[in-house]
Design a protein around this nucleic acid. Structure first.
Lengths: 200, 200
DNA sequence: GATTTAACGTACCGTCTGGTACGAATACTT
DNA sequence: AAGTATTCGTACCAGACGGTACGTTAAATC
């Protein structure tokens, strides 16, 4: 995974990759990724543009690296909720809380922000976005199928469709948070949207 | 409304305002408004930038003018559906069809596109977006209250909240259309979302 | 200490953006 | 015909963007 063979000669690198990625992730998270320029990130991280270029190969590479890190550090929370394999009502409640109340999602979600403006992304980043998107749908679908086997969910609709529905509704809620809307209102709206899945 | 007093002297204007607005609307509709530059519109409409500036005062003024025109010519369709005061199921079906199947919405909706990137709009355009947004919610709310009085809808939830919900779900569907997703899938998803409002 | 290797960052590149200065063109009024 | 009013569009402005050429600096090796 790591492609840093650490050369045995030459001037030692002073660029802190982790710090740079954290700064970039913060900037992409706080604002819209497409509105954050490479120059701005260089200033924030106190890194020169060529240095950033040597490591990430350009804006596309940086965004992709940030997205990878974000998936590990943040999106994993969602996958963990599904992996608990808890009853549907409980899982939905956890998802609603995560999307509408969780403080760290107060400015929305880097993944959904990137997905919303995917036509402006570079090829590598766009590819990662697509991968994460399908991975998320598959995780939701797997969860639903598992609960269906346990008899907890009586799939009137196809699991694939409901999985897609969940991904989109959570994305809508997180987009609304990014827009600064009232969390309580977002929670109620998302709860209404997800109520179609509850047991009768 | 019209502030074109037509001066009695001076070189006559050759700029066709209607054609210019149509070209700009088409460009904003086909692509994302924030991705369409003034230069591109000038080329498409065969209008010089200063000419465009004299009439609309800049990008913000042009966008606002386009949005006004779009509201009159396109968004009015939605208001008409509500004004029919038809039963809830019938109205929802019409809205679902409009958002997911209507050919002219195949590339999404100028209003929702602008709303999604409102932080990038000029003040005049942003103000209009906000006005249309509240007007839409109010129209949906008024429709729901009217149907509630007729006993056609048993408001378990507040009309205001359901109105907001409808506006957001339709926006989600139109955003998905702009992203080029499958209309049939969008229809099913939107139908699922709106099923929470149907009579039991 | 000389040489090699590699990261450093200043200062630049071309391109695009929204916006404008200004002289030429074209009408009506006198 | 002279003067005035208004629109015309070329050619420019400053600024931001992503990206890079290249001389400098700092380590390991000889």
């Amino acid at each position: 995974m790591s492609d840093a063979p650490k050369p045995k000669r030459g001037r030692p690198s002073t660029l802190d990759i982790d710090k740079t990625l954290d700064v970039a992730m913060g900037a992409y998270w706080q604002n819209d990724p497409v509105d954050v320029s490479l120059n701005a990130i260089c200033d924030l991280a106190s890194v020169s543009k060529p240095a950033l270029y040597r490591i990430f190969g350009g804006e596309d590479g940086l965004m992709r690296a940030v997205l990878d890190r974000y998936a590990e550090q943040v999106l994993s929370d969602i996958f963990k909720i599904l992996a608990r394999d808890a009853p549907v009502n409980e899982t939905l409640a956890a998802l609603i809380h995560f999307a509408s109340q969780e403080p760290k999602m107060a400015t929305g979600c880097v993944f959904y922000k990137m997905r919303a403006g995917k036509h402006r992304l570079g090829p590598k980043t766009r590819e990662r976005v697509a991968e994460i998107d399908t991975a998320a749908v598959q995780a939701f679908e797997a969860y639903l199928v598992a609960r269906s086997d346990d008899g907890d969910w009586d799939g009137d609709q196809s699991p694939a469709m409901v999985a897609r529905y969940l991904v989109e509704q959570i994305g809508l809620a997180l987009t609304q948070r990014a827009a600064g809307e009232d969390p309580a209102g977002i929670r109620d709206t998302l709860a209404l949207a997800l109520s179609v899945i509850q047991r009768p």
